[in-house]
Amino acid sequence: MKPPPFDYHRPSSLGEALDVLAGTGEDGKVLAGGQSLIPLLNMRLAAPAHLVDINRLTDLAAVEEEPGGLRVGALARHSRVERSARAAEVQPLLGQALRLVAHPVIRNRGTVVGSLVHADPAAELPAVLALLGGSVRLARRGGTRDVPAAGFFTGPLESAAGPGELAVSAFFPALAPRSGTAFHEVARRHGDYALAGVAALVGLDDDLRVSVARVACVSVGPVPLVADVVGACGHRPPASADWAGAARAVQDRIEPETDIHATADYRRHLTGVLAERALRDAAREALHA
């Protein structure tokens, strides 16, 4: 089907974009890569009165290292971040997750920040931001605020970005020394949204014992679910840590639902298997880091 009519705006500066968004309020929507919004328009599941196309705001395409992490601008496409050697060094989990996002052609247009604002509970990047404790920078006419991941995802397809606000960038904390990450998921077809998926972060102390073990799960709740499992796996070297116990602790925390794609039980099973796999891989990375 075809999109419903809307008024199209194409600001050429951030200030102009914020003015247009302030003027359109509840009736305005930002158009970034369009890889989630245009399908919704084509299927007539959304009908905003105004679209504010930010594709000319090329200043927002930057991917930059900052003290403590990586700042990804609103116009940085998935493919650009995936290929950035700097990004891979600062925070490898981003690349690990991006390879699982849709297909290469979709990644040429879709943006990292757009994916965060879209806040699909099955999407990989919100889980990454939540696991790492990153933040999203929201600008409106006359002000800017940084919203931590824990408060950013407010429900399925709902984020803290309000009417009149533009998410200008997201901040992903760097990988700490002696830490590793991994992202594993199961999807019906390659490139589909996952039935279940787990991102893991493992950190070791000076004696190479596990001191950080955390996972973020997708598709098992309205927002990415972060679980700290360091207690369950034990303060031990990775080789003798109880990863299976940690995976059971994750299974106890989640509340998956049954839908046409999978039953709740199957999702719980998958999440356990994926959690153990991701934690073990992350621990291996940490030992080599």
Partner: peptide
């Protein structure tokens, strides 16, 4: 399909493959 799944509409935009059904002509 007009929702990005089938890939039939793929064209090159400045040399990069993109879904033409998920891009507005004005963009």
């Amino acid at each position: 399909c007009e929702h990005g799944v089938c890939g039939c509409c793929t064209v090159l935009l400045d040399g990069e493959p993109v879904r033409s059904c998920l891009t507005f002509a004005v963009t």
